[in-house]
Amino acid sequence: MTTTIPLSITVDGEQRDLDVDPRTTLLDALRERLAVTTPKKGCDHGQCGACTVLVDGRRVLSCLTLAVAKDGADVVTANGLAPDGGSHPVTEAFLANDAFQCGYCTPGQVCSAVGAIDEARRGMPSAATADLAGDDVVLDRAEIAERMSGNLCRCAAYVNIVTAVEEAASR
């Protein structure tokens, strides 16, 4: 028998306490233990991005994160991006631009887009950034496609996803 370890995390603004087997990923803790099913399990190997959440403000893959290693962390899913249950500008841009079909990858796409826009605003470069030494990032379509490459969409709604992120970033 493996002993469980106590864990306290904030999920979408609410403090949650639970005991977990050390093998439990953050994704499984959220979905199977806390019934927070917003992040999705796609590949479960860090290849598809469907499980993307924000941990302490940064986008990460919850399927490759051990829950025990995130004791005390602030976890935000696509459902908790806006205060008071409202709608986040990125979510609204996805709706306005038809940036999904089946929707399975969408919570991960939205969290990833929020993280990517924040990274660009902080001047963090990407492989598509022409001037690596520069301080400013212009989020054009090539930059967005590169920065969102960790989120796969099997419906291939990419064209509209890029448009949605472009629109949300310009607000």
Partner: peptide, 19 residues
Amino acid sequence: YPAVAAAILAGASGQLRNM
């Protein structure tokens, strides 16, 4: 060290590079 920055950015995804 532009080769170092460029090499990191050529690998993985935004989420993985954060982790």
